[in-house]
């Protein structure tokens, strides 16, 4: 089995089409992913947004975000479909699993460091306390 990867696919749909068309297109694309053996972990409609620059004379678009888990085959098919489809103004696919893993690693490292520092700090203070106790004992 090929390795499973996580992708974020964001695309812009033409706003001149109706909302029904957008939902239908969404479902179609999700079906394509499933057919190719991928799974969708998140779908987020980011809504209508002003484009930062015109794309094909369009100044606004409907943003949709998919989070896909799969081998990469479904991404190839999805991108091919989106390229052909005129309703999709633009798409971007970002592989996120590696970056997330790295972020996790940093986080774990920081946590480890923090615990080490905390334990060292507590032992130091406790040993100091012990020293104080012994000194007070000797005074008595």
């Amino acid at each position: 089995m090929a390795t499973q990867r996580i992708y974020e696919v964001m695309f812009i749909v033409d706003t001149s089409v109706t909302d029904d068309d957008i939902t239908r297109l969404n479902e179609n694309l999700q079906q394509i992913i499933k057919d190719q053996g991928g799974s969708i972990t998140k779908v987020e409609n980011m809504g209508r947004r002003q484009l930062a620059y015109p794309i094909g004379r369009k100044t606004d678009g409907f943003y949709v975000l998919f989070e896909v888990e799969g081998t990469g085959r479904e991404i190839a098919e999805l991108e091919r479909r989106m390229r052909v489809n005129d309703q999709v103004l633009r798409y971007i696919t970002v592989r996120v699993d590696e970056d997330r893993q790295r972020a996790e690693k940093f986080k774990a490292k920081r946590a480890r460091k923090a615990t080490r520092r905390a334990s060292r700090g507590s032992t130091a203070s406790s040993s100091r306390r012990e020293a104080k106790e012994t000194s007070s004992a000797s005074e008595e």
Binding site: R49, A52, Y53, I55, G61, Y63, R90, Y91, I92, V94
Partner: peptide
């Protein structure tokens, strides 16, 4: 750069 590509930010 990614955001620019998807028209979230201007070039």
């Amino acid at each position: 750069k990614r955001a620019r590509n998807i028209a979230l930010l201007p070039y």
